[in-house]
Design a binder for these strands. Sequence first.
DNA 1: TGTATTAGCCTGTATATACAACTAAATTAA
DNA 2: TTAATTTAGTTGTATATACAGGCTAATACA
Lengths: 250, 250
Amino acid sequence: MQNKQIPRYQQLKDLIIEQIYDGALKPLQRVPSENQLVKSMGVSRMTANRALKELNEEGYLNRRAGVGSFVSDFRVNSHLFEIKNIADEVAFRGNKHNSRIIKQSLIDVPRKISRIMNIDSNEQIFHILLVHYEDSIPIQIEDRYINRFFAPNFLEQDFLSITPSSYLSGISPLHQAEQIVSAIIPKNLISNLLEIEKESPCLLITRKTWVKKEMITYGKFYHPGDRYELVGHYEPVKSNKFQKNNKKFM
Amino acid sequence: MQNKQIPRYQQLKDLIIEQIYDGALKPLQRVPSENQLVKSMGVSRMTANRALKELNEEGYLNRRAGVGSFVSDFRVNSHLFEIKNIADEVAFRGNKHNSRIIKQSLIDVPRKISRIMNIDSNEQIFHILLVHYEDSIPIQIEDRYINRFFAPNFLEQDFLSITPSSYLSGISPLHQAEQIVSAIIPKNLISNLLEIEKESPCLLITRKTWVKKEMITYGKFYHPGDRYELVGHYEPVKSNKFQKNNKKFM
DNA sequence: TGTATTAGCCTGTATATACAACTAAATTAA
DNA sequence: TTAATTTAGTTGTATATACAGGCTAATACA
């Protein structure tokens, strides 16, 4: 242990978080127990306990009494819990999810995206456009740009069997995300794909995600206003949940 | 200390939370120090520390080293941080907030509200309808029903100088809240008040709040789609923030 | 009177220790 | 073989103690 300014429990936490982000500790993998940390790190058990306990509360780890502490599976339940996978939502409601790929390609970075994602406009970037269906009814259009160095095998993925969200969060957990919700009247392309009347309203979610201070994806997600709503439930004590519901099916 | 099933630190927490909700401990008031709890409750200092520390993390208390622990002022910063006061948002952007009261009255409970809030339809309920302006531009219509036993002096309040949100959260902190976001085309009354074109989209936030398992308010909040958006920013470690922004002014 | 200093209380962190409860795997008994 | 028991390791909780550092108010000093 080096710096005396930073508390030891925090140094322990930082160490473990770093290993998770570096991939040295992978999802579901066991992390050292409290007693092992006592020996290897030269701290007391209470200090090790505090570090692991807080990492658990923050979603990095899952702990079970009698078993051990394990890295969270970010593919299933990101610690950025608000950003959920739409296929899981649909499955949660007991319905069938499928999708239709409109575009999946490597393109020159559009000027607007270049500015937003801070990528040189001579570069290339992955772009995907697909429609998500719940029991054959369109509920989301995903229009997303993905940093090509983050997901080099993006084009070879079969996004009919796994959603882009799920694939991307499997590569690395997110460090940061921003989500902007607005109400719009979509353009014809969108309303056609969503199979809604022209001039009918949509929820537009614009989402940016970062890994290590670098913006990895920028996407727009369109939902039919009459078939989709965002539900947020807040309680002071427990961790907040933020799940999306579909009016039509609940 | 009574029950052996519930941990002592949790019993301590429950005790303090109860006193906050009962009004025995009021906002900004000092709570017993760790050492005082050691003496009065017969626990060790580490146990008292855990209780106060967690209550601090959960937003019930504010703690300052060298000073003490104090009940949070829920009027300024509710622990349900996502539910913010629109006047504060406007002020945060450096703009001027004002409002126009369309209705403020005690009415018979409409059937729909009776079902939603689980109030007998022979009862009466407060209803308020007002427009919030940011630099004289409408940004929100608040259409809210308030349990009349929760806020008996509701009609005497001057909601030009204090917003209903602020007034209500000053009576008691919230225990629970639900917020549903959807995109709609509003009726003429709404679009007229918002001074937007007919057929232009709105963000509709439907919000329910509870105190002690009892629904206290039910409200609909309409925002012009082209002048308002919800911004959520997520980071794993720190507490999440959820603030509303106004496109036009930022 | 005005200014330093000190004393005392507060939280934050850290250690050492202890027991309870839980779990999985190894061991023993039927 | 199967079932019951033991064992070892893990987390969860609780105590007693200690020192550092922040803050306030009383005290001493000029």
